[in-house]
Amino acid sequence: MRRSRLVLFLSSLLLTAGTALTGAVSAHASQLTASGGYVALGDSYSSGVGAGSYDSASGDCKRSTKAFPPLWAAANAPSSFHFTACSGARTGDVLAGQLGPLSSTTGLVTITIGGNDAGFADVMTTCVLQTDSACVSRINTARAYVDSTLPGQLDNVYSAIRSKAPNARVVVLGYPRFYKLGTTCLGLSETKRKAINDASDHLNAAIAKRAADHGFAWGDVRPTFTGHEICSGSSWLHSVNWLNIGESYHPTAAGQSGGYLPVLNSND
């Protein structure tokens, strides 16, 4: 009986210690994200092109006050906030001009990157203006690039982030699917819409793999955008915008707050 009570006592003690340790680790991670600085890197999907309310000081980078990084910063009050994401950025641009604010005190880093390297703008231009076969051919070229070249470029960016911000939690966010399929919709053919969606999935898979291999969190925005694609009747993405062509195929303000921000909140 005494031996049994001793075993129970020791088991309880170990369980309590384990719970306390787990709680301490969780609390530390939360504290690091909340009290450390936040640096938002990446391309137009992070800068907020399409959301409006651009900071005039950001020039052609078109950083929006309605993009998910400033929305997160306003809600969580990090010790510092640096918003260096820029419209049109490629992996080389991140390496050359966006990493300056990173340091050992950085608690959170977010990034969307890779779409411009893969030729996003040219793919969409081809698909809007040319035939189904030309669209599919251009997409196949982009997919080959994603398979052969993009992983190494992502590795360079992710390694640089970890080197400069060794204590940060890094959240890599992806891209939405653009079209709701199987519905009547003016504009691109179903063939083009499906090829574009499949290409987005292919790009996301490549980015997610590299992020995982670097120990970074993956933020998949496709679930939050489901039901809000172009042709859904409740789109959080601009279709072709002839008045402001640069906003075409980018998230609206609702896409930033309803599509991207909740994914970051679940991964921060």
Score class of each variant (00 low, 15 high):
residue 152 G to D: 15
residue 153 Q to E: 15
residue 153 Q to W: 03
residue 154 L to Y: 04
residue 155 D to L: 00
residue 156 N to H: 13
residue 157 V to K: 11
residue 158 Y to W: 11
residue 159 S to L: 12
residue 159 S to K: 10
residue 160 A to Y: 10
residue 160 A to V: 08
residue 163 S to P: 06
residue 166 P to W: 08
residue 167 N to R: 13
residue 173 L to A: 11
residue 173 L to P: 14
residue 174 G to Y: 06
residue 174 G to Q: 13
residue 180 K to D: 11
residue 182 G to Q: 02
residue 183 T to N: 06
residue 189 S to F: 02
residue 189 S to L: 07
residue 191 T to K: 06
residue 191 T to L: 08
residue 191 T to Y: 09
residue 192 K to M: 02
residue 193 R to L: 00
residue 194 K to H: 06
residue 195 A to N: 06
residue 195 A to M: 07
residue 195 A to L: 08
residue 197 N to I: 05
residue 198 D to P: 01
residue 202 H to P: 11
residue 202 H to D: 14
residue 211 A to K: 11
residue 212 A to S: 15
residue 213 D to H: 09
residue 214 H to N: 14
residue 218 W to P: 09
residue 218 W to R: 08
residue 218 W to Q: 09
residue 218 W to E: 10
residue 221 V to I: 12
residue 222 R to D: 11
residue 223 P to A: 04
residue 226 T to V: 03
residue 228 H to P: 04
residue 231 C to F: 01
residue 234 S to N: 13
residue 240 V to G: 00
residue 241 N to V: 07
residue 242 W to H: 09
residue 243 L to T: 14
residue 246 G to E: 12
residue 246 G to F: 04
residue 248 S to F: 00
residue 249 Y to R: 01
residue 250 H to M: 05
residue 251 P to C: 09
residue 252 T to N: 08
residue 253 A to R: 01
residue 253 A to C: 03
residue 256 Q to S: 06
